[in-house]
Design a protein around this nucleic acid. Structure first.
Lengths: 232, 232
DNA sequence: GCTGCTGTTTGCTCTGGCGCAAACAGCATA
DNA sequence: TATGCTGTTTGCGCCAGAGCAAACAGCAGC
């Protein structure tokens, strides 16, 4: 099965590639579907492939030995993920779970050295992805060290909505199902605290909730909360 | 000034290099001294170079807009740091401060593409460094999400001591000056809490403190604390 | 339309660890 | 030997947010 260039031509990861370059990249890939809640790869499993998300949303989850779960990030359409090979790792450090039905491009790790040599801008894009994830994660550590729960949750919501928001009449909605528990696992807090805060924000007209739904109705107001600039 | 191969021949970053490879790498580098407390590079500053620590210890610090400081990591002898260029970044995301007098190799970023092409194993080592920092940072997020302060501090201490410990008669000592405040900034807690816990541990015979000094006298006991397996 | 499951809300209690304050101790300099 | 400066210790009060419990609500399947 041959994949069409148009699948990936518009993506930032391939911005610098010409037609033949795109074909070279696609020649080694295959596309597959992952239904909602299925695992694309599993924490600790041998890293045999790397991936690009064509459609859908993917949750990257780490589980501690004691069974605690933490959501490291959400992958959006067009992003590379599971690129353990680019970091010289042989196992996946986290699991990737489809938050909705997804379409994923898969490359075998064996293709990496060759791709890196023949399509250097593709490799550069992978390295940049890793670099920006490192930045994001370090920023998260800073947030967790210095900010209170309310600001952290507000920031997290704004980030989600800015990366994976869908405009509606009411405001900007997270365009995949997300539970209060998920938000808690992203911010290092508890389901209960998230629920309480969202309820409070709903009363203030900042957000609107629903089952596995969050709509930010007043992004600017939420930013004020995130920056801790509100007059209590 | 020409640098001698022996400077770097034993380092993991150059493990795969032969003699000419080492020379090629060194040809573009220059070596310099940084006195204690001086900055090797500064957060937000334009990233013009990347570095390797030949001797000493370096503290990587991020400062928030509100002035909060967080210690992202310590760099040990033989490690690459400030490799913004490998992540496609144009500014440094943190500052690097010499914790003791240091000797540092410096390459201009301009040398990177060439080195990457001619000494691929050097580039690979840089990418692996970034990858393992991402792992470390994500592990830190997990710790901060799921563990209490006591465990986090115990883990942090064990990590420091295993990476930069010096054996003494008393136990393993952190071999650079480190304050309670530093430990607090590594673990997202406060000077006071760190001091209290170290005092308590000293009473239990796990560690021994001093001004800017920490000696772990009973690593195994401290691991029990870190794993939260103690009978209170 | 009923049933069950999964996710959400909310009240109450309790406590880890932060913030403040003050005293104290090494170490360097005059 | 005295004087500061910087880092450390410790006591005390407080509160953000966790933990527990219980009721509630949307949605899927029968």
């Amino acid at each position: 099965m041959t994949l069409d260039r148009s699948l990936i031509a518009g993506l930032p990861a391939f911005a610098d590639l010409d037609g033949p370059g795109l074909d070279a990249v696609l020649a080694r890939a295959r596309s597959s579907r992952f239904p909602k809640d299925s695992e694309v790869f599993s924490q600790g499993g041998e890293a045999a492939s790397f991936f690009l998300l064509l459609a859908g949303h993917i949750r990257v989850v780490r589980t501690s030995p004691e069974g605690h779960q933490v959501i490291a990030r959400y992958i959006n359409e067009g992003e590379l993920f599971g690129i353990a090979v680019a970091m010289g790792r042989s196992t996946y450090p986290a699991s990737a779970v489809a938050a909705v039905d997804c379409v994923v491009l898969t490359w075998p790790n064996a293709a990496w050295p060759d791709l890196q040599a023949r399509v250097p801008s593709f490799a550069a894009s992978a390295y940049q992805t890793i670099g920006s994830r490192l930045q994001d994660t370090q920023a998260q550590v800073m947030e967790m060290s210095t900010q209170q729960v309310e600001q952290r949750i507000a920031h997290a919501l704004l980030r989600i909505v800015s990366q994976s928001g869908r405009k509606t009449e009411q405001g900007i909605e997270v365009d995949f199902p997300i539970t209060r528990q998920d938000i808690a696992e992203m911010t290092g807090t508890t389901l209960h605290t998230v629920s309480r805060l969202l309820s409070a924000w709903e009363d203030e007209g900042l957000v609107k909730g629903g089952r596995q739904r969050v709509v930010v109705t007043n992004p600017h107001g939420l930013m004020v909360v995130a920056e801790n600039r509100r007059r209590k």
